[in-house]
């Protein structure tokens, strides 16, 4: 019997003494290890399918031109200076509208979130304004401001302001009451309470608002430039539509997409830095 038992025991001993390397385990219900440059994979896959379909002659160039045709168009537009000029105009509008909108949205949220008077004056009409699609204000704004730059910047600013206001105000007013109690027991003054508890607690909400606002500012830009513009990427696409230049339209779409992607990535980067105290499922 002992003879029969001995080999497994020896094996067990050996197994116990053998250096065991244990791979660091990931959270079982988490999303797993982040894929390096994972966010680029999806767009690359689509590009691959597009390339393959064009090379195989499956795509009618009038419906969707081949990637190399689009690349040619890009270099042609860059040589002519059209792309840079349009891009500068579009970016300028987006940046100006976003800046004004962000300032207004955050200021209004602070006013409404930090004082009862501000809440009474600001919150009511902003909730109403939120219910009105801002792009529905285009006809009125054109009558008021004409079809120049001012009206475009104002529309973008309005969209950004409302989006940011809603998220930031929600962040400011949903501070955990336990922290309010704590602040009272340690005798914080009102201004220190706001600086140490309310504002940092509202930052996650602000970042949600910023990311939504960036997206919606691009959306407004597309609409504005395709309806009422004489310059910008949207205008470029609109003109291309008249002359059935599918390749130029695709270039415009790629530019919009790239800038949406880049601005969101930049915000994510800043958010990770600023909110480094958070440990969430996606980290």
């Amino acid at each position: 019997m002992t003879d029969v038992l001995a080999p497994p025991q020896a094996a067990l001993q050996a197994a116990l003494q053998a250096p065991v390397t244990v791979a660091p385990r990931r959270r079982r219900l988490g999303l797993g290890r982040p894929i390096p440059y994972g966010r680029v994979l999806g767009p690359l896959l689509i590009l691959g399918v597009w390339l393959a379909a064009s090379a195989a002659g499956l795509l009618d160039p009038r419906v969707l031109p081949a990637p190399w045709t689009v690349a040619d168009t890009v270099s042609r537009l860059v040589e002519a200076g059209t792309l840079q000029d349009s891009l500068a105009v579009s970016l300028g509008r987006a940046a100006l509208g976003f800046t004004f909108g962000a300032l207004a949205g955050v200021s209004l949220a602070l006013a409404a979130g930090l004082s009862r008077l501000g809440e009474a004056l600001v919150d009511g009409w902003l909730q109403v304004q939120r219910a009105v699609p801002t792009l529905g204000l285009i006809p009125l704004m054109i009558l008021w401001l004409g079809i120049g730059e001012a009206f475009k910047v104002v529309i973008i600013a309005l969209v950004v302001a409302v989006t940011l206001y809603v998220q930031t105000y929600a962040g400011l007013t949903s501070i955990d009451s336990r922290y309010v109690e704590l602040a009272e027991t340690v005798g914080l003054s009102r201004s220190r309470f706001i600086r140490a508890v309310v504002l940092p607690g509202a930052l996650p909400g602000l970042f949600v608002g910023l990311r939504l606002a960036v997206t919606s500012s691009w959306i407004s830009l597309v609409v504005l430039e395709q309806i009422n513009a004489t310059s910008g990427i949207g205008y470029l696409m609109f003109q291309a539509q008249n002359y059935a230049q599918t390749d130029v339209i695709v270039v415009g779409l790629i530019v919009y997409g790239l800038f949406g992607f880049i601005s969101d990535a930049a915000l994510r980067f800043v958010e990770r830095r600023v909110l480094s105290w958070r440990r969430t499922l996606s980290s």
Binding site: E181, L182, A196, L203
Partner: peptide
């Protein structure tokens, strides 16, 4: 006051 939860501000 010491509470049942530590009530540390997560962002500090």
């Amino acid at each position: 006051v010491v509470f049942q939860d530590s009530r540390l501000l997560p962002w500090q």
